[in-house]
Amino acid sequence: MAPKQEIQADTTTGVWTVQTRTSTYLLDFDEMTLLRAPGVGGDDSEDWTVSRLRRDSEDIPLLGVKSCRVGESAQFWVRAADDPDVRTWRITTPVVSIERIG
């Protein structure tokens, strides 16, 4: 499928990849999960450091997208996988590319 410039906040279906300066995210709106692969697809610039986050490379419950646009940091609303009462934001380094893959 063709690259996109943004994922709309009201998106409710499909599987998307979001590549940032330091990582690649897989958003599955059908299953409502988010997976972060740190260091995958990032650039070699020394301006950006790959941070290690809890639950990297694991599916975590996705509650929604506040913003996700090429050239800006994305903001994903997620639930802690080990405590359903805890909700938090995942804020990324600037988005390089967005693609709907399913």
Results as ranks from 00 to 15, higher is better:
16 W>T: 06
16 W>A: 02
17 T>Q: 11
18 V>K: 00
18 V>D: 00
19 Q>R: 15
19 Q>G: 04
19 Q>P: 01
19 Q>A: 05
20 T>M: 07
21 R>S: 02
21 R>W: 00
21 R>C: 07
21 R>H: 09
22 T>H: 03
22 T>D: 06
22 T>W: 01
22 T>P: 07
23 S>W: 05
24 T>A: 01
24 T>N: 04
24 T>D: 01
25 Y>P: 04
25 Y>F: 14
25 Y>S: 01
25 Y>A: 00
26 L>T: 15
27 L>M: 12
27 L>Y: 03
28 D>Y: 00
29 F>S: 05
29 F>N: 11
29 F>I: 08
30 D>P: 04
31 E>P: 00
32 M>E: 11
32 M>V: 05
32 M>W: 14
33 T>L: 05
33 T>C: 02
33 T>D: 04
34 L>V: 14
35 L>T: 15
35 L>N: 12
36 R>Y: 07
36 R>W: 04
36 R>P: 01
37 A>E: 10
38 P>E: 03
38 P>M: 07
39 G>L: 06
40 V>T: 07
40 V>H: 02
40 V>D: 03
41 G>A: 04
41 G>R: 03
41 G>M: 02
41 G>Y: 03
41 G>S: 06
42 G>P: 10
42 G>Q: 06
42 G>Y: 05
42 G>D: 02
42 G>C: 08
43 D>L: 05
43 D>R: 07
43 D>A: 04
44 D>P: 02
44 D>Y: 09
46 E>V: 11
46 E>L: 14
48 W>I: 03
48 W>L: 01
49 T>G: 09
49 T>S: 13
49 T>K: 13
50 V>N: 03
50 V>A: 08
50 V>D: 02
53 L>A: 14
54 R>I: 13
54 R>F: 13
54 R>H: 13
56 D>Y: 08
56 D>G: 06
56 D>F: 09
57 S>N: 12
58 E>D: 12
58 E>R: 12
59 D>R: 14
59 D>A: 12
60 I>F: 12
60 I>D: 10
60 I>C: 09
61 P>G: 06
61 P>K: 07
62 L>V: 03
63 L>K: 14
63 L>W: 04
63 L>G: 13
64 G>S: 11
66 K>R: 10
66 K>G: 01
66 K>C: 00
